[in-house]
Design a protein around this nucleic acid. Structure first.
Length: 233
DNA sequence: CCATTAACGACTA
DNA sequence: TAGTCGTTAATGG
């Protein structure tokens, strides 16, 4: 029962009937990972496709100097893997940021599923192209602009990604994810000493809000967007 | 404007 | 206790 509700929540599998979801259970093993555990590293056996059922997964690479460069954070319903190749190249790491449930599918299983349900291939293509678009947009923003702009853009992205759309109408939306300055810096190609003053400035500008230590950020979307659109592109 | 380096108190495994 | 995190400050590009 639990499994079915989980599967139905996944982007890749919505639109399928209950019976079809039941069949998928046989080829979609569930992996429960505790916080901070490595899901993918360059030295692991390639599993082709991973689907995040719950929790958060951080994807990152190592620079030549050995620093972690976070490329993306995935939440429930998102997928990544070797076959998709829109995520996870050979030198990619994936680590859980909280206790997570992850579905692993290898080549044979994926081929089998897709051959039985061609609709999945279409859905899959949609996800890949959406991902591609996102990366292109991200690239454009990260290439130019100050760390402040990159942070604003990142926060906007995260707000879209990790906010329940029920509260998207409100002035303040809550980022349902734990973020350290370290991670924000790693995602904007910066360092935490630079991020700290900027975050504090955004708080004083009324764009960001932090309920307390170890608590999630809230974002004033309108103010963030105006602050973002002030910048010429 | 921003990275680097250093350093310090608080917190956590 | 050792490592991480947020923060400040000096310096140099």
């Amino acid at each position: 029962m639990e499994l079915i509700t989980y599967l139905a929540r996944m982007d890749l599998f919505d639109g399928l009937t209950q019976d079809e979801l039941l069949q998928l259970n046989h080829v979609t093993p569930l992996e429960i990972r505790s916080k901070g555990s490595m899901v993918v590293s360059p030295y692991m056996s390639p599993k082709v496709l991973y689907i995040v059922k719950s929790g958060k997964v951080r994807l990152y690479k190592l620079t030549e100097e050995g620093k972690e460069l976070t490329l993306d954070i995935l939440g429930a319903g998102h997928l990544f893997g070797e076959l998709s190749s829109f995520h996870t190249s050979a030198d990619m790491f994936a680590v859980t940021m909280e206790d997570s449930i992850i579905c692993e599918i290898d080549v044979q299983q994926f081929r089998k599923i897709v051959s039985e349900k061609p609709m999945l291939a279409l859905k899959y293509i949609e996800l890949v192209t959406a991902r591609l678009k996102e990366v292109e947009e991200l690239l454009g923003y990260m290439a130019y602009g100050s760390v402040r702009q990159r942070l604003l853009f990142l926060l906007h992205k995260l707000a879209i990604k990790f906010t329940s759309n029920s509260q998207m109408m409100h002035e303040w939306v809550t980022l349902e994810i734990e973020l350290t300055h370290q991670e924000l810096a790693s995602m904007t190609g910066s360092i935490r000493e630079t991020v700290t003053p900027i975050i504090n400035q955004l708080v004083s500008e009324g764009i960001l809000r932090k309920e307390g230590i170890r608590k999630p950020y809230s974002i004033h979307l309108n103010r963030l967007q105006t602050a973002l659109s002030v910048v010429s592109l």
